[in-house]
Amino acid sequence: MKRIDRFILTFTLLIIPAITVVAQDSGKQNPELGAVYSLGDQTLSINGGLFVPLFFQEFTGAVHVTNLTPGGVGSLQWNTYLKRNITLGIEVGGVFAFSPNFNMLLLLPITVKASYIFTYFPFDFPVFLGTGIDIAKYQDNIHVDFMLKPGFSTYWRYNTSWSFGVNTVYWWILQPATGNQPKDEGRMGNFLEISLSALYHF
């Protein structure tokens, strides 16, 4: 396995327990919580919004334009509370954007997501990291890549069941050269998601 791959593997395996540990140590705060959620509580959310292609980057550092138009993003997310301010969940989504010749790029990310939630009633401010795979399809080509999705959200608690909010998520997709491809054709995709959410607690 390549050096970069080993680094990513190690980073991935470390990041989730690290978040969990940090979260466990900092859970005592905020006297005005409104409804308090705990282990076993779950949420479902639906998200949709704007997908902004930022830039592609070679593994050696050189930066290139994506040539993509802004696109659309949508996703479904399930989370479960481990503590009142820590959740772990799964997110499945889809993205489309267009090339200069109006060919459609499709991205299908499937990620595991860990969140730490700061609460200032009636607002929640989750800070999260998602990690998993992204299935990219363009013309006849399909690529399965590793991805990270750090981000933060702002939710307003409408009532004990429903919250509504805004997400800002950075997408970092690693697409190294594989097989017989020249090494310098590997790229890291950098994108930004700005989306709205409706979140249901149950």
Binding site: F56, T66, H143
Partner: peptide, 16 residues
Amino acid sequence: SCTDSSSPIFYTLENE
């Protein structure tokens, strides 16, 4: 994610 060997999509887009 490391087993695919089709054309590099991001590189293709960058050069379109």
